[in-house]
Amino acid sequence: CAFTHRPCSHPRLEGQEFCIKHILEDKNAPFKQCSYISTKNGKRCPNAAPKPEKKDGVSFCAEH
């Protein structure tokens, strides 16, 4: 993984420079932040999710 703030030993995603944990660092990657919002604390999930086809579409990470 090419994350520069600290060493990361996670494997890169195929065709990308970053792992799934750090892929949002790459603005050109086909990922965006997960659209899930917790009902308990109102916070948005920080994980990466595939970018949807539509610009305003929602997309969820593997956990959600």
Rank of each mutant, 00 (worst) to 15 (best):
H22E: 01
K43Q: 13
I20R: 09
C45Q: 01
L13I: 08
P50E: 15
D56K: 15
D26V: 07
L24C: 09
A48I: 05
F60S: 03
C19W: 00
Y36M: 05
E17I: 14
N41F: 11
P52C: 06
L24W: 06
P46R: 14
C61I: 02
K51P: 10
F3D: 04
P50Y: 04
C45H: 01
P11Y: 02
N47E: 13
P46N: 15
C1L: 00
E14C: 07
Q33L: 15
P52H: 08
R12M: 02
S38I: 03
Q16M: 07
N47Y: 08
G15R: 04
F31T: 05
A29R: 07
G42F: 05
A2R: 08
F3W: 07
K32T: 06
C34E: 06
Q33K: 13
P52M: 14
P50R: 10
N28F: 11
G15Y: 01
P50S: 10
A62L: 11
K32Y: 06
K43N: 15
C19M: 00
F18P: 01
V58D: 15
D26F: 04
G42D: 11
S35R: 10
P50D: 03
C61Q: 02
I23R: 04
A2W: 01
N41R: 13
D26C: 10
R6V: 11
H22Q: 02
S35V: 14
K32G: 12
C1H: 01
G15M: 05
A49E: 05
V58F: 12
C61Y: 01
S9P: 06
E17R: 05
N41I: 12
A49R: 03
A62Y: 05
K27Q: 07
C8F: 00
P52W: 13
K32H: 06
R6Q: 12
H5F: 11
E63A: 12
N28S: 15
L13G: 02
R12F: 00
A48R: 07
C8N: 01
C34V: 01
C1M: 01
E63G: 14
N28E: 12
H22M: 00
F31N: 03
F31G: 10
L24Y: 07
C8P: 00
A29M: 05
F31M: 06
E17K: 07
N41L: 11
A29H: 05
P11M: 11
H22T: 00
K32V: 08
I37K: 10
D56G: 12
C34G: 03
C45K: 01
S9E: 06
H22I: 00
F18L: 08
T4N: 05
Q16N: 04
C45F: 01
K32M: 12
I23Y: 04
T4S: 06
C8E: 01
Y36W: 09
C1E: 03
A62K: 15
E17G: 04
S9G: 08
K32L: 14
K32D: 08
D56V: 10
K27M: 04
S59H: 07
A29N: 05
A49V: 15
K51T: 09
K21I: 04
Q33P: 14
L24I: 05
P7W: 07
R6F: 15
G42I: 05
N47Q: 15
N47H: 09
P7Y: 07
S38V: 14
P46A: 09
E25V: 12
K27H: 11
Q16D: 02
V58M: 14
S9T: 06
S59P: 08
L24V: 06
K43C: 08
N47W: 11
A62W: 11
L13K: 04
D26E: 07
N28R: 13
C1Q: 02
P50V: 05
G15K: 07
D26K: 06
C19I: 00
F18S: 01
F31P: 06
F18I: 01
C61P: 02
L24R: 07
K21T: 07
K27N: 13
L24G: 10
I20E: 09
P50L: 08
C61G: 02
R12G: 01
A49L: 11
P52S: 11
F31W: 09
E63C: 10
D56Q: 12
N47R: 12
Q16P: 00
E63P: 06
R6G: 12
T39C: 05
H5K: 11
R44C: 14
T39F: 10
S38F: 14
P52D: 11
A29W: 02
P50N: 09
K51E: 12
K21A: 13
E17F: 06
C61N: 02
T4F: 06
Q16T: 07
F18E: 01
D26T: 12
K40D: 08
L24K: 04
Y36S: 13
C34S: 03
A2H: 04
I23H: 04
H64Q: 02
H10N: 10
A2Q: 06
C8A: 00
G15V: 00
H22N: 00
D26R: 06
D26W: 03
K21C: 09
Y36I: 08
H22A: 00
D26L: 06
Q16G: 03
P11R: 11
I20D: 05
S38K: 11
K27F: 03
I20M: 14
H10G: 15
